[in-house]
Design a protein around this nucleic acid. Structure first.
Length: 465
RNA sequence: GGCUAGGUGGCAGAAUGGUUAUGCAGCGGCCUGCAAAGCCGUCUAUGCCGGUUCGAUUCCGACCCUAGCCUCCA
């Protein structure tokens, strides 16, 4: 039984797919106006983990993650760059895929682009107008009439009056209520526009997700995810739209991942504490370090980004890969389930407790190290297969250990060949019991960021720190 | 002002009404020419004040502190 915290009720509930055995999930992807930042990366990795784990548990998963490619920010950036907005969006969509591949995020079953779903949006806006939930304001925009939707505020746990009382929004004369939001913006010169029954224009942000999720998954599906900051107003508005258009149940479970903070503050451009995933990837040994870091605390809590944290993540991965090192991958050895597998599943079944699941992996690594030093190759191979299988459910330990240890040509810049030549020279010195020379070479390599490990029997392995 | 989440050992981070994860760092031992890695052992913790209880870090209440949302935002 898989239990998931539902933001709608504030409680954990059992996942019972609307279609038995088939989980259909949607998450709000990124707006492709720039490289996505590490906060986006957290959301993307979290929901990739969710979809991977559900598949690992034998469920069929249809995962839909949209791409917002019609948006003010894209239009503005494209204008600044002097390129067509479509070209700007295409460029950053390609970059997004590169970074996601690096992070080990699988491609969702569908990645709808807003610009290709205008018809679906217009259809939904039409339904909302017909059902009395929307109106065309004096400025030509089509607005959602929040007062007509009785359940407005349910997801964010607030009443319309409370929301309005704290509202810092400027009162827009065209709106019937300050919280009314735009479904269709009437065209402005130089902006992308499509024809509609309400005149030329383009969609509001919120309607994009409602239309795309309904089109791809229908109005009633299992999981809707996104960052905590989307809870209000974006997801509240999605509920108002989808339910207003078809009286649907919409998503059974709403999942929200916590923020990734920097120096315990939310990252933002005004504070200048803003990192793109690309910048971070360039600084670390391997993208898997970032993925491990992002999964090392529970998805719902806040987490703090810092270089120290990334070092801890790298150390954690080193330990796991070390356990796997020198254990031959034997295709004939099945991943036998042990108590560790049960513990792993128990942790993950309880609202995707990845930190506890990783602790189980660490325990497995310890067992594996013990089995290897006890000279039990059968047990080692069995445990290694189990460790790989469980890690795979989190999208971790996807590399061959040797590739992991050789990754990260950082300071020093010695090639593999350079290193191996020095290792050979040191071996000769060792055989001559010339410890001074041996230690000199080892220190020389250490200064270049390469750590040597002598194995019993005379072999020496190396790794980049 | 309203609403929400959280305050765990040197750091990160889980869990739990009593036996107190996991990783990093530290300390002792084994191993090693010496290391590294690994293994074994080990030291530090539950914001503050009340209450419920045989017993609370865990439940309840007050307080202090932090972050977030109420505006585009993963």
């Amino acid at each position: 039984m898989i239990r998931i915290h539902n933001s709608l009720t504030g409680q954990k509930q059992e996942l019972q797919p609307v279609e038995p055995g088939h989980v259909r999930m949607y998450s709000c992807g990124v707006t492709v106006y720039d490289f996505f930042h590490v906060g986006n990366a957290r959301m993307l990795v979290v929901f990739d983990m969710v979809s991977r784990y559900l598949r690992h548990r034998g469920l069929r998963v249809t995962y839909v993650r949209n791409i917002t490619d019609v948006d003010d920010k894209i239009i503005n950036r494209a204008r600044e760059a002097g390129v067509d907005w479509r070209e700007h969006a295409r460029k950053f969509t390609a970059a997004m895929h590169e970074d996601l591949d690096a992070l080990g995020c699988m491609r969702p079953e569908k990645e709808p682009k807003a610009s290709e779903y205008i018809d679906a949006m217009l259809r939904m806006i039409g339904q909302l107008v017909d059902n009395g939930y929307a109106y065309q304001a004096s400025n030509g925009d089509v607005m959602y009439d929040v007062r007509k939707f009785a359940a407005y505020g349910k997801l964010s746990g607030r009443k319309l009056d409370e929301l309005r009382a704290g509202a810092r929004v400027e009162v827009d004369e065209a709106k019937r209520d300050p919280l009314d939001f735009v479904l269709w913006k009437s065209a402005k010169p130089g902006e992308p526009a499509w024809p509609s029954p309400w005149g030329e224009g383009r969609p509001g942000w919120h309607i994009e997700c409602s239309a795309m999720s309904t089109q791809e998954l229908g109005p009633h599906f299992d999981i809707h995810g996104g960052g905590l900051d989307l809870k209000f107003p974006h997801h509240e508005n999605e509920i108002a739209q989808t339910c207003g258009a078809s009286a649907a149940k919409f998503a059974e479970i709403w999942m929200h991942n916590g923020f990734l903070n920097i120096d315990n503050e939310k990252m933002s451009k005004s504070l200048g504490n803003f990192f793109t995933t690309r910048e971070v990837l360039a600084k670390i040994k391997h993208p898997e370090v970032l993925r491990f870091f992002l999964l090392s605390s529970h998805y719902r809590g806040p987490m703090n980004y810092s270089p120290d944290q990334l070092e801890l993540a790298e150390a954690g991965l080193n330990r796991l890969y070390t356990a796997l090192r020198d254990v031959p991958v034997d295709a004939g050895v099945p991943a036998t389930a042990s108590a560790a597998t049960d513990a792993f599943h128990a942790a993950m079944d309880d609202d995707f407790n990845t930190p506890e699941a990783i602790a189980v992996l660490q325990g497995l690594a310890r067992e594996l190290n013990s089995a290897r030093s006890a000279g039990d190759p059968g047990k080692s191979a069995r445990l290694a297969a189990e460790l790989r299988s469980l890690s795979g459910a989190l999208g971790l330990l996807r590399m061959a250990p040797e590739d992991w240890f050789r990754a990260g040509a950082r300071a020093g810049g010695l090639s593999d060949g350079d290193i191996e030549a020095r290792v050979a020279a040191r071996l000769a010195a060792r055989q001559a019991r010339n410890w001074a020379e041996s230690d000199r070479i080892r220190q020389e390599l250490a200064d270049a960021g390469v750590i040597l490990e002598d194995k019993p029997g005379g072999a020496t392995t190396w790794r980049r720190a």
